[in-house]
Design a protein around this nucleic acid. Structure first.
Lengths: 118, 118
DNA sequence: CCAATTGTTCAATAACTTTTGAACTAAGGA
DNA sequence: TCCTTAGTTCAAAAGTTATTGAACAATTGG
Protein backbone atom coordinates (compact mmCIF):
# COMPACT_ATOMS: atom_id res chain seq x y z
CA UNK A 1 0.00 0.00 0.00
CA UNK A 2 2.02 2.91 -1.24
CA UNK A 3 -0.48 5.45 -2.45
CA UNK A 4 -3.10 7.21 -0.30
CA UNK A 5 -6.25 5.18 0.34
CA UNK A 6 -9.25 6.11 2.49
CA UNK A 7 -9.86 3.97 5.56
CA UNK A 8 -13.01 1.84 5.50
CA UNK A 9 -15.10 4.33 7.41
CA UNK A 10 -13.93 7.21 5.28
CA UNK A 11 -15.51 5.65 2.20
CA UNK A 12 -18.40 7.89 1.12
CA UNK A 13 -21.55 6.63 -0.57
CA UNK A 14 -22.14 9.51 -2.99
CA UNK A 15 -18.48 9.49 -3.99
CA UNK A 16 -18.51 5.74 -4.63
CA UNK A 17 -21.71 6.03 -6.69
CA UNK A 18 -20.36 8.95 -8.71
CA UNK A 19 -17.11 7.11 -9.34
CA UNK A 20 -18.97 3.99 -10.49
CA UNK A 21 -21.22 6.13 -12.68
CA UNK A 22 -18.56 6.33 -15.36
CA UNK A 23 -18.57 3.57 -18.00
CA UNK A 24 -14.78 3.26 -18.15
CA UNK A 25 -14.48 2.87 -14.39
CA UNK A 26 -17.45 0.55 -14.18
CA UNK A 27 -15.81 -1.68 -16.78
CA UNK A 28 -12.63 -1.74 -14.76
CA UNK A 29 -14.54 -2.72 -11.62
CA UNK A 30 -16.50 -5.39 -13.44
CA UNK A 31 -13.28 -6.86 -14.78
CA UNK A 32 -11.59 -6.79 -11.37
CA UNK A 33 -14.62 -8.56 -9.90
CA UNK A 34 -14.56 -11.25 -12.56
CA UNK A 35 -10.85 -11.84 -12.02
CA UNK A 36 -10.99 -11.49 -8.27
CA UNK A 37 -7.89 -12.79 -6.55
CA UNK A 38 -5.82 -12.18 -9.67
CA UNK A 39 -4.24 -8.76 -9.09
CA UNK A 40 -4.22 -6.67 -12.24
CA UNK A 41 -1.83 -4.12 -13.53
CA UNK A 42 -2.83 -0.99 -15.40
CA UNK A 43 -1.85 -2.22 -18.81
CA UNK A 44 -4.69 -4.75 -18.68
CA UNK A 45 -7.04 -1.83 -19.26
CA UNK A 46 -5.32 -0.11 -22.15
CA UNK A 47 -8.15 -0.96 -24.51
CA UNK A 48 -10.46 1.22 -22.43
CA UNK A 49 -8.46 4.45 -22.49
CA UNK A 50 -5.01 5.96 -22.95
CA UNK A 51 -2.33 5.30 -20.37
CA UNK A 52 -2.59 8.83 -18.96
CA UNK A 53 -6.35 8.70 -18.80
CA UNK A 54 -6.26 5.27 -17.13
CA UNK A 55 -3.94 6.68 -14.52
CA UNK A 56 -6.60 9.32 -13.83
CA UNK A 57 -9.50 6.85 -13.63
CA UNK A 58 -7.57 4.38 -11.48
CA UNK A 59 -6.65 7.20 -9.12
CA UNK A 60 -10.35 8.10 -8.83
CA UNK A 61 -11.24 4.51 -8.00
CA UNK A 62 -8.46 4.34 -5.43
CA UNK A 63 -9.32 7.70 -3.81
CA UNK A 64 -12.96 6.68 -3.54
CA UNK A 65 -11.94 3.48 -1.75
CA UNK A 66 -13.19 1.17 -4.47
CA UNK A 67 -9.80 -0.28 -5.35
CA UNK A 68 -6.45 -0.76 -3.70
CA UNK A 69 -3.23 -0.06 -5.61
CA UNK A 70 -0.01 -1.53 -4.42
CA UNK A 71 3.33 -0.66 -5.96
CA UNK A 72 5.34 -3.75 -6.87
CA UNK A 73 8.47 -2.98 -8.78
CA UNK A 74 7.51 -0.77 -11.66
CA UNK A 75 3.92 -2.08 -11.68
CA UNK A 76 0.80 -1.44 -9.64
CA UNK A 77 -1.22 -4.35 -8.39
CA UNK A 78 -4.83 -3.28 -8.44
CA UNK A 79 -7.48 -5.12 -6.43
CA UNK A 80 -11.11 -4.53 -5.53
CA UNK A 81 -11.68 -3.52 -1.90
CA UNK A 82 -14.54 -5.97 -1.69
CA UNK A 83 -14.36 -6.68 2.06
CA UNK A 84 -14.28 -3.00 2.93
CA UNK A 85 -17.10 -2.12 0.56
CA UNK A 86 -19.24 -5.02 1.78
CA UNK A 87 -18.68 -3.96 5.37
CA UNK A 88 -19.54 -0.35 4.67
CA UNK A 89 -22.34 -0.78 2.10
CA UNK A 90 -23.68 -4.35 2.35
CA UNK A 91 -24.93 -5.74 -0.94
CA UNK A 92 -24.04 -2.68 -2.96
CA UNK A 93 -21.03 -3.99 -4.82
CA UNK A 94 -22.70 -7.32 -5.61
CA UNK A 95 -25.76 -5.68 -7.12
CA UNK A 96 -23.69 -3.19 -9.09
CA UNK A 97 -21.47 -5.93 -10.50
CA UNK A 98 -24.42 -8.17 -11.33
CA UNK A 99 -26.07 -5.26 -13.12
CA UNK A 100 -22.84 -4.36 -14.90
CA UNK A 101 -22.41 -7.96 -16.06
CA UNK A 102 -25.73 -7.72 -17.84
CA UNK A 103 -24.90 -4.41 -19.49
CA UNK A 104 -24.16 -4.82 -23.19
CA UNK A 105 -23.26 -1.15 -23.57
CA UNK A 106 -20.31 -1.15 -21.21
CA UNK A 107 -16.91 -1.28 -22.92
CA UNK A 108 -15.28 -4.68 -22.55
CA UNK A 109 -11.79 -5.38 -21.26
CA UNK A 110 -9.61 -7.99 -22.89
CA UNK A 111 -11.73 -8.85 -25.91
CA UNK A 112 -9.93 -10.88 -28.59
CA UNK A 113 -7.68 -12.28 -25.89
CA UNK A 114 -6.85 -15.85 -25.05
CA UNK A 115 -8.40 -15.76 -21.60
CA UNK A 116 -6.36 -18.32 -19.72
CA UNK A 117 -6.68 -18.16 -15.94
CA UNK A 118 -9.77 -18.90 -13.83
CA UNK B 1 -47.54 10.42 -16.63
CA UNK B 2 -47.06 13.69 -18.45
CA UNK B 3 -43.35 14.19 -18.75
CA UNK B 4 -40.94 11.92 -20.67
CA UNK B 5 -39.78 8.84 -18.77
CA UNK B 6 -37.51 6.04 -20.02
CA UNK B 7 -39.08 2.60 -20.32
CA UNK B 8 -37.80 -0.03 -17.90
CA UNK B 9 -35.31 -1.51 -20.32
CA UNK B 10 -34.01 1.91 -21.30
CA UNK B 11 -32.79 2.53 -17.76
CA UNK B 12 -28.98 2.62 -17.86
CA UNK B 13 -26.75 1.51 -15.00
CA UNK B 14 -24.01 4.13 -15.32
CA UNK B 15 -26.60 6.89 -15.66
CA UNK B 16 -28.50 5.71 -12.58
CA UNK B 17 -25.27 5.50 -10.57
CA UNK B 18 -24.12 8.94 -11.70
CA UNK B 19 -27.52 10.44 -10.89
CA UNK B 20 -27.49 8.86 -7.43
CA UNK B 21 -23.93 10.07 -6.90
CA UNK B 22 -25.13 13.54 -6.01
CA UNK B 23 -25.94 14.22 -2.35
CA UNK B 24 -29.03 16.33 -3.09
CA UNK B 25 -30.53 13.67 -5.33
CA UNK B 26 -29.55 10.85 -3.00
CA UNK B 27 -31.36 12.65 -0.18
CA UNK B 28 -34.46 12.97 -2.33
CA UNK B 29 -34.39 9.27 -3.14
CA UNK B 30 -33.85 8.31 0.47
CA UNK B 31 -36.80 10.44 1.51
CA UNK B 32 -39.03 9.01 -1.22
CA UNK B 33 -38.08 5.51 -0.09
CA UNK B 34 -38.87 6.27 3.52
CA UNK B 35 -42.24 7.73 2.58
CA UNK B 36 -43.01 5.13 -0.06
CA UNK B 37 -46.64 5.10 -1.10
CA UNK B 38 -47.03 8.74 -0.10
CA UNK B 39 -46.52 10.69 -3.34
CA UNK B 40 -44.48 13.81 -2.82
CA UNK B 41 -44.56 17.18 -4.44
CA UNK B 42 -41.50 19.27 -5.16
CA UNK B 43 -41.99 21.71 -2.35
CA UNK B 44 -41.20 18.94 0.15
CA UNK B 45 -37.59 19.27 -0.90
CA UNK B 46 -37.19 23.03 -0.72
CA UNK B 47 -34.80 22.74 2.21
CA UNK B 48 -32.36 20.89 -0.05
CA UNK B 49 -32.08 23.45 -2.85
CA UNK B 50 -33.79 26.37 -4.59
CA UNK B 51 -36.98 25.76 -6.54
CA UNK B 52 -35.20 26.12 -9.87
CA UNK B 53 -32.40 23.83 -8.87
CA UNK B 54 -34.84 21.23 -7.55
CA UNK B 55 -36.61 21.27 -10.87
CA UNK B 56 -33.25 20.45 -12.45
CA UNK B 57 -32.41 17.62 -10.03
CA UNK B 58 -35.90 16.13 -10.21
CA UNK B 59 -35.69 16.16 -14.00
CA UNK B 60 -32.39 14.29 -13.79
CA UNK B 61 -33.94 11.64 -11.55
CA UNK B 62 -36.92 11.32 -13.87
CA UNK B 63 -34.82 11.13 -17.05
CA UNK B 64 -32.62 8.47 -15.49
CA UNK B 65 -35.70 6.37 -14.67
CA UNK B 66 -35.26 6.62 -10.91
CA UNK B 67 -38.49 8.51 -10.26
CA UNK B 68 -41.83 9.02 -11.91
CA UNK B 69 -43.41 12.49 -12.05
CA UNK B 70 -47.10 12.84 -12.64
CA UNK B 71 -48.77 16.19 -13.18
CA UNK B 72 -51.79 16.64 -10.92
CA UNK B 73 -53.22 20.09 -11.04
CA UNK B 74 -50.44 22.54 -10.55
CA UNK B 75 -48.37 19.98 -8.60
CA UNK B 76 -46.18 17.04 -9.54
CA UNK B 77 -46.59 13.77 -7.74
CA UNK B 78 -43.17 12.22 -7.49
CA UNK B 79 -42.70 8.54 -6.75
CA UNK B 80 -39.78 6.11 -6.74
CA UNK B 81 -39.78 3.65 -9.66
CA UNK B 82 -38.96 0.84 -7.28
CA UNK B 83 -40.55 -2.01 -9.27
CA UNK B 84 -38.80 -1.00 -12.46
CA UNK B 85 -35.45 -0.52 -10.76
CA UNK B 86 -35.76 -3.82 -8.91
CA UNK B 87 -36.59 -5.61 -12.13
CA UNK B 88 -33.71 -4.05 -13.99
CA UNK B 89 -31.04 -3.99 -11.24
CA UNK B 90 -32.06 -6.46 -8.50
CA UNK B 91 -30.95 -5.42 -5.05
CA UNK B 92 -29.36 -2.17 -6.15
CA UNK B 93 -31.93 0.28 -4.85
CA UNK B 94 -32.26 -1.53 -1.53
CA UNK B 95 -28.56 -1.48 -0.86
CA UNK B 96 -28.22 2.15 -1.91
CA UNK B 97 -31.09 3.22 0.33
CA UNK B 98 -29.81 1.18 3.27
CA UNK B 99 -26.40 2.78 2.83
CA UNK B 100 -27.92 6.25 2.45
CA UNK B 101 -29.96 5.76 5.63
CA UNK B 102 -26.72 5.25 7.52
CA UNK B 103 -25.06 8.30 6.03
CA UNK B 104 -24.83 11.17 8.51
CA UNK B 105 -23.37 13.51 5.91
CA UNK B 106 -26.32 13.51 3.55
CA UNK B 107 -28.56 16.58 3.81
CA UNK B 108 -31.86 15.76 5.52
CA UNK B 109 -35.33 16.51 4.23
CA UNK B 110 -38.04 17.76 6.55
CA UNK B 111 -36.02 18.31 9.72
CA UNK B 112 -37.81 20.35 12.37
CA UNK B 113 -41.11 19.09 11.00
CA UNK B 114 -44.00 17.44 12.73
CA UNK B 115 -43.71 14.16 10.85
CA UNK B 116 -47.26 12.88 10.85
CA UNK B 117 -47.97 10.09 8.37
CA UNK B 118 -46.50 6.59 8.38
C1' DC C 1 -61.54 37.87 -13.58
C1' DC C 2 -57.54 38.36 -10.43
C1' DA C 3 -54.15 36.73 -7.54
C1' DA C 4 -51.67 33.15 -5.47
C1' DT C 5 -49.42 28.76 -5.83
C1' DT C 6 -46.59 25.35 -8.20
C1' DG C 7 -43.50 24.36 -11.01
C1' DT C 8 -40.91 24.99 -15.76
C1' DT C 9 -37.76 27.14 -19.15
C1' DC C 10 -34.08 29.96 -20.61
C1' DA C 11 -29.64 32.00 -20.74
C1' DA C 12 -25.71 33.00 -18.20
C1' DT C 13 -22.17 31.70 -15.23
C1' DA C 14 -19.60 28.98 -12.11
C1' DA C 15 -17.66 24.85 -10.97
C1' DC C 16 -16.25 20.64 -11.84
C1' DT C 17 -14.52 16.37 -14.68
C1' DT C 18 -12.43 14.27 -18.50
C1' DT C 19 -9.02 13.98 -21.99
C1' DT C 20 -4.68 15.08 -24.08
C1' DG C 21 0.41 15.34 -24.86
C1' DA C 22 4.90 16.18 -23.23
C1' DA C 23 7.99 15.55 -19.65
C1' DC C 24 9.17 12.88 -15.91
C1' DT C 25 10.50 8.99 -12.25
C1' DA C 26 11.73 4.49 -10.87
C1' DA C 27 12.77 -0.35 -11.48
C1' DG C 28 14.75 -4.09 -14.12
C1' DG C 29 17.19 -6.41 -17.70
C1' DA C 30 21.01 -6.68 -21.27
C1' DT D 1 25.54 1.83 -17.72
C1' DC D 2 21.94 2.31 -21.03
C1' DC D 3 17.56 1.04 -22.59
C1' DT D 4 13.00 -0.43 -21.97
C1' DT D 5 8.83 -0.93 -19.48
C1' DA D 6 5.27 0.83 -16.29
C1' DG D 7 3.13 4.29 -14.64
C1' DT D 8 2.76 9.35 -12.75
C1' DT D 9 2.50 14.42 -12.99
C1' DC D 10 1.52 18.70 -14.97
C1' DA D 11 -0.77 22.20 -17.47
C1' DA D 12 -3.90 23.12 -21.02
C1' DA D 13 -8.12 22.36 -23.49
C1' DA D 14 -12.59 20.39 -23.96
C1' DG D 15 -16.69 18.98 -22.22
C1' DT D 16 -20.27 18.49 -18.75
C1' DT D 17 -23.01 19.47 -14.76
C1' DA D 18 -24.76 22.51 -11.22
C1' DT D 19 -26.59 26.88 -9.74
C1' DT D 20 -28.71 31.30 -10.32
C1' DG D 21 -32.34 34.77 -11.44
C1' DA D 22 -35.80 36.50 -14.37
C1' DA D 23 -39.59 35.43 -17.09
C1' DC D 24 -43.09 32.27 -18.15
C1' DA D 25 -47.25 28.80 -18.00
C1' DA D 26 -51.10 26.48 -15.81
C1' DT D 27 -54.20 25.51 -12.23
C1' DT D 28 -56.99 26.82 -8.38
C1' DG D 29 -59.40 29.66 -4.98
C1' DG D 30 -61.61 34.11 -3.89
Amino acid sequence: MTLPHPTTDQISLPIVLAVLGDPTRLSIVRYLARKEGVPMNCSKFLDLASKTNLSYHLAKLREAGVTRSEAVGTSRLITLRRDDLDKRFPGLLDSVIAAADGDKDLPAVGTAEAEVSA
